[in-house]
Design a protein around this nucleic acid. Structure first.
Lengths: 234, 234
DNA sequence: ATTCTTGTGTCAACGGTGTTGACGTAACCT
DNA sequence: AGGTTACGTCAACACCGTTGACACAAGAAT
């Protein structure tokens, strides 16, 4: 899991910072994750990262070329984390749901990263393992090769897409986010019946628009796949 | 969400800027769209917007509370564009597919905007119209109120999620994008059969991972909805 | 033990950002 | 004609990412 160092992987001189911390690429990635998780991605800045580390912000540039480079290293760690502990049960549909939901959750854990890390093919070991596992489950279900690939693509892009959307919501400051959910009641709950009949009719249920839609979506997709398999068996 | 206007919708005093332009909220949104489309979302700043308008950057704050507020207006314009020309056929499933695909396409037509605009509840007129139409189609299909809302949420978030993912790909430089698609063949096409049996088996079909997965996804979702309605009717 | 090299933490600075408050002036109302 | 005030402008603030110069301690060489 190498990072894109500007510096040989192994460091010899470990000079502690003025506050006594001994820096390393791993430690910086740790701190970055923590910062993003606790403060929200919006709050992530190199300067705050430096403060959290107890080091001058510019020290980060001894380990990463720039902010994007650092965020890629964080994304790299994500892929590994998300698949840790995945244990197939034997039910292909349930396992697929679990696998894809893991990708979603770990992407969502770091919202800012999710937006750009979901579009690149990393080709790294963890990604390769995940792809093989997912396609394997679809083959096990009985789909032919091409269909398995197509369906895998569908599931993964859907999960990552939802992650990107939901990540955007997470990026908002908590107060802003609350206001946004409230908006469904405030702005939509009181639309006039003559101009917006459907919205008016369902106004009691608009809070359902608040949370994430991943799980309902995956449930529908997997139900459709299950049915496809069943029909094929007839 | 709070009103975007800090000012009554209709303006009386139209004082031209020092360069002779007469500002308006619409004109500012125009300029913002143009700027983002041509230069990329990264390049969008209030100061550049001011320069493009031939006005002091801070003039923007007479029309929008802050940048976020302006971007919501941009997002709503996109929704409006996408809905222009939508004509329901009477087949709720086909109409839903069309409606949602329109949202996807217009988001994708402006990849730079899509990345952030897919994320917020704008609460603005165009969005309200689209929401009412979509939920109306689901009610017409026979779903109860709460279920209609849930399914609408599912469809919209899915389409916008795919737009976000696919827009991310579009943003890559063409060379980069080609390399990324090639990676599916290069990196995955030659994985050893013993370690990655499933990927190895489907290696002929990995190019299917290239394009967008929206349509297959929507087809699966709508098939699931159709079946739900059919079962309810029994 | 002393010197030398160099990796690396620090500091100051640059040019950028969004946003705000004061200010004057032109556009409308009476 | 005069008064109000909307709104464009300006200057300033507090941030941001990033860089180049610098000091110094860790390890190597002697």
């Amino acid at each position: 899991m190498a990072e894109s160092e500007r510096v040989p992987a192994e460091r010899k001189r470990r000079r502690p910072t003025s506050s006594g911390v001994v820096l390393s690429a791993d430690l910086i990635v740790d701190a970055a994750c923590e910062l993003i998780d606790s403060q929200g991605a919006q709050a992530f800045t190199v300067r705050k990262l430096g403060a959290a580390l107890g080091a001058d912000p510019s020290a980060v540039y001894r380990y990463f070329r720039n902010t994007e480079d650092l965020l890629l290293a964080v994304a790299d760690r994500l892929i590994g984390e998300s698949m840790a502990g995945f244990a197939p049960s034997g039910d292909w549909a349930a396992d697929l749901r679990d696998l894809v939901l893991r990708a979603y959750r770990s992407a969502l854990r770091h919202p800012q990263i999710a937006v750009f890390s979901t579009v690149r093919v990393t080709g790294r070991p963890h990604e390769q393992r995940a792809v093989d596992t997912g396609i394997g489950l679809l083959l096990q279900a009985g789909f032919d090769d091409a269909t398995a690939v197509r369906h895998y693509h569908t599931l993964v892009d859907t999960a990552l897409g939802h992650a990107a959307v939901d990540a955007g919501v997470m990026r908002l400051a908590p107060a802003q986010r609350a206001a946004d959910e409230q908006a469904w009641q405030d702005e939509y709950g009181s639309l006039p019946a003559d101009e917006y009949p459907s919205v008016h009719r369902v106004r009691e249920h608009l809070t359902l628009m608040g949370g994430s839609a991943v799980e309902p979506t995956l449930d529908l997709l997997i139900a459709a796949l299950r049915r496809e398999v069943a029909q094929r068996a007839e």
